[in-house]
């Protein structure tokens, strides 16, 4: 009788423990699965007023803009390393980006190259500086900039670097 009672109690305890585990585990799995499905469904029907082609275009523009905003965070650091990293990110992003955004990316690339050129110049690496300046110049020319002289490029770099880094490298 005692043994039987102990078995019942053990079995009750085990099922109680199973409930304790399965309730939150089920909740977590349900949360993840439903969250993903809802996200995808919602994304598929967003901008549906635009029609399929325009909605697709807007979604691609949005994705590119988001990637650009992430790269802007890199630019905020204003260090040579962060500018170089930003150049890498933008170079990779450009071929995948929405066509409309190519020129916007080019401008950002030109700013980065002008910034790196300015820093290299401050560090007396004239060959490296000239290389970056040439890339910036070509990009700005393709964007129709009226003045792509060395002075204009330095001004562009200074605006972006906010002088702080230049002062640091001068020391």
């Amino acid at each position: 009788m005692d043994k039987e009672w102990a078995r019942v109690r053990l079995s009750f305890l085990l099922s109680f423990l199973a409930c304790l585990v399965l309730l939150p585990a089920g909740g977590y799995i349900g949360y993840l699965a439903a969250g993903r499905i809802a996200f995808r469904y919602e994304q598929s029907k967003s901008f549906k007023t635009l029609g399929r082609r325009d909605a697709e275009e807007l979604r691609r523009i949005g994705e590119t803009a988001y990637a650009l905003s992430v790269s802007r965070v890199l630019q905020l650091q204003k260090t040579e390393g962060s500018l170089r990293q930003d150049i890498e990110v933008l170079d990779k992003l450009r071929p995948k980006a929405a066509h409309e955004f190519w020129r916007i990316i080019d401008l950002r690339l030109a700013e980065d190259h002008a910034g790196v050129a300015r820093i290299e110049e401050q560090a007396n690496n004239s060959a490296q500086a000239a290389g970056h300046r040439r890339i910036a110049e070509d990009l700005l020319q393709s964007l129709g900039w009226r003045d792509v002289s060395e002075n204009a490029l330095n001004q562009l770099a200074d605006r972006r670097l906010r002088h702080s880094l230049l002062r640091k490298t001068e020391k």
């Binding site: 399965l22 089920g26 439903a34 969250g35």
Partner: peptide, 25 residues
């Protein structure tokens, strides 16, 4: 218990998925 967990999780998951999608957009 498992089904209740799944359903409660799914309710919160759907809300979160919709909110995330809209915020993302």
């Amino acid at each position: 218990a498992a089904l209740i967990g799944l359903m409660v999780g799914a309710v919160f998951g759907v809300k979160q998925g919709v909110w995330l999608s809209r915020s993302f957009d």
